[in-house]
């Protein structure tokens, strides 16, 4: 009980006293996970729409792959990205192992299938007559897609929230490809794991609280947007 109380008070102290290290870690967490979410939305939504409305052989198989991808274990993603990015790996010449960019790539791989799968479900959930109607009204291809997005925006916001939730909470991949380097690739989740192994449970609890507050604020913002647009 003591640990919980001191942990929480420690968290508030860290937030309000503006501990520079905690601030940097929080900002980096936001930047990497935010950017990974944006990139996965930019690719996942078009891909999801495509998979949802086009019919081609092997479509169900491909969708089943995407759905499985929603459960990609971050540690496995981290391992694969590491193997590719190591100095003597296929992409070693890029020199991005143990950098925020490597973490961004790993998180992008984790978030993309989530966003794509949610998009497929969202688009396929629309009334099939809608497609005919939009086309009958003479919409161009681009307008057609845009209208689909607008119709499914409620479910698509859920896709964004799920993608963001997937990456901001993952630790395995960030640890492996980022290395938890102080002041450089340390994010809230990897810092929490490290503090636990150091036995600093109060600090770990404080970092965890900041992470929760951060995740909640972003989700709240998106939810407000979703609910407003949903009307």
């Amino acid at each position: 009980m003591d640990t919980i109380l001191t942990g929480l008070s420690e968290a508030f102290k860290m937030i309000f006293q503006g501990d520079p290290e905690v601030f940097r870690v929080t900002l980096l967490t936001m930047q990497i996970s935010g950017a990974a979410t944006v990139l996965s939305v930019l690719t996942g939504i078009p891909l999801g729409i495509y998979l949802a409305i086009k019919s081609f052989p092997g479509k169900s198989f491909l969708i089943s792959l995407v759905n499985t991808g929603m459960g990609l274990p971050p540690t496995v993603v981290g391992l694969w990205v590491s193997i590719f990015l190591w100095r003597y790996g296929p992409f070693g010449y890029l020199n991005i192992m143990y950098t925020p960019i490597a973490m961004l790539i790993a998180q992008f791989i984790i978030a993309s299938p989530i966003v794509t799968a949610f998009t497929i479900a969202a688009i396929q959930n629309l009334n099939p007559k809608l497609h005919l109607q939009i086309q009958a009204l003479g919409a161009s291809r681009f307008q057609y897609y845009l209208l689909l997005i607008r119709e499914a925006k409620f479910a698509l916001t859920a896709a964004v929230i799920a993608g963001f939730g997937g990456v901001i909470s993952e630790v395995g991949a960030s640890m492996m490809v980022g290395g938890n380097i102080k002041g450089y690739t340390r994010v809230l989740t990897t810092a929490t794991v490290m503090e636990v192994s150091k036995g600093n449970f109060e600090i770990a609890l404080a970092l965890g609280t900041i992470l929760l507050v951060l995740a909640y604020s972003v989700t709240l913002l998106l939810t407000i947007l979703q609910q407003r647009e949903g009307k």
């Binding site: 935010g34 950017a35 944006v38 925020p100």
Partner: peptide
């Protein structure tokens, strides 16, 4: 609003990766 949100997130992408 959505556009602004996207821009903020995109901007964070570049500031985040420009450091090294």
């Amino acid at each position: 609003i959505s556009l602004a949100l996207c821009l903020i997130l995109l901007a964070s992408l570049f500031t985040g990766c420009g450091q090294p």
